[in-house]
């Protein structure tokens, strides 16, 4: 167990290092950081001085080492566009994104799992067919169109819910939460649904496919031959075996919700890191791009670790070595 976790940890560090390298190359070679910091009419000498001061004349590995050391401390430099430290920018916008991602992850997980199980157990029913067709429509609808559609119906026509922003927020420590005010909750509903829909259909289709596969296995047939009830077979045997492959992919899907929120945040003008990133891409604000990349990679690595540990808990074949031979 320990060896397994340590191996995964080592892999995670490698992944982070690779992403850091990409982020650094981005930082160092895309655009000219000096030109971005100094105005158009600065003297050549100023350029040279700044280059020296920023350590841009040092060898590659020294610069990379410094970048890593800074990154570990959460230090990514100053945004070209907003002239603020990147870490501050990201931290101030993080609560909005995390609350949104969390809400939609729960929606996606709950509905995705239950609909997936339902369509697998009753594959020939009319309802299952309808759900499958609707899910295909869901996959074909771009997220931004879903958002626009929801805004049009619920905000413009029916005027039930707000169309943009987070509503009122309450500050707890350094965390601005929208979950404690009624406007905050109401503002969360539409973006959370928008963001969850795509993952929901993916999880549902995955659960269905895996469960259908499991239901074809010999041990399910043998369980039937032993006279077990349908309930015991479907929810005791089939569902647990379905979970093994589903955990991995679902975990990663939920992780990508955070990165996926870029589009949703743009449509709903949600003040999160996603909209910060998209604004940065448009003006090539490299420090923010690099930091965002590192942030997403970190989320991915953490989720991956959690998934591995879950995997371990579910599958005895990993936990206990084979006693054969």
């Amino acid at each position: 167990m320990l060896a397994f976790i340590l191996r995964r940890l080592a892999q995670s560090i490698v992944v982070m290092a690779v992403v850091a390298l990409i982020a650094f190359m981005l930082f160092r070679y895309v655009g000219d950081p000096v030109a971005s910091l100094l105005g158009q009419d600065s003297r050549l000498q100023d350029f040279e001085e700044l280059r020296e001061r920023l350590g841009l004349n040092d060898p590659f590995y020294v610069q990379f080492g410094r970048f890593i050391a800074n990154a570990v401390q959460g230090e990514f430099g100053i945004s070209y566009r907003l002239q603020q430290p990147v870490s501050e920018l990201i931290l101030s916008r993080l609560p909005a994104t995390i609350e949104l991602a969390f809400a939609s992850a729960i929606i996606a997980l709950v509905f995705g799992l239950s609909l997936g199980v339902f369509t697998a157990l009753k594959p020939r029913s009319f309802a299952a067919g309808l759900i499958m067709t609707l899910s295909l429509v869901g996959v074909s609808l771009p997220t931004f169109l879903i958002g626009i559609g929801l805004i049009y119906v619920f905000a413009v026509e029916l005027q039930w819910l707000p169309s943009f922003g987070r509503g009122d927020v309450v500050r707890i420590g350094s965390w601005d939460t929208g979950l404690l005010t009624s406007t905050g909750i109401r503002s969360l509903i539409l973006p959370a649904i928008t963001l969850s829909l795509f993952q929901l259909t993916l999880i549902m289709r995955l659960v269905r496919a895996e469960m259908l596969e499991v239901l074809r296995q010999d041990y399910i047939r043998f369980a039937r031959a032993r006279g077990l009830s349908n309930r015991a077979i479907n929810f005791g045997h089939a569902l647990k075996n379905t979970m093994v492959p589903v955990i991995t992919i679902t975990g990663l899907q939920l992780g990508s919700v955070i990165a996926f929120s870029i589009v949703t945040e743009t449509v709903f003008q949600w003040p999160g890191v996603g909209s910060l990133f998209i604004n940065s891409v448009q003006v090539v604000d490299v420090p923010v791009m690099a930091a965002y990349l590192m942030f997403i990679a970190f989320v991915f690595v953490v989720i991956n670790l959690i998934v591995d540990i879950l995997y371990f808990a579910v599958d005895p074949r990993l936990r206990i070595g084979s006693g054969r031979r």
């Binding site: 981005l26 992780g255 996926f260």
Partner: peptide
């Protein structure tokens, strides 16, 4: 496969945005 795995865990939109951003810089 490790590269593919890492990339698959990022939404395609993000990768595309990133590449787009790099291209804009270059």
């Amino acid at each position: 496969m490790r590269i593919a795995d890492i990339q698959l865990s990022f939404p395609a939109i993000l990768i595309a945005l990133l590449i787009f951003g790099i291209a804009r810089g270059i």
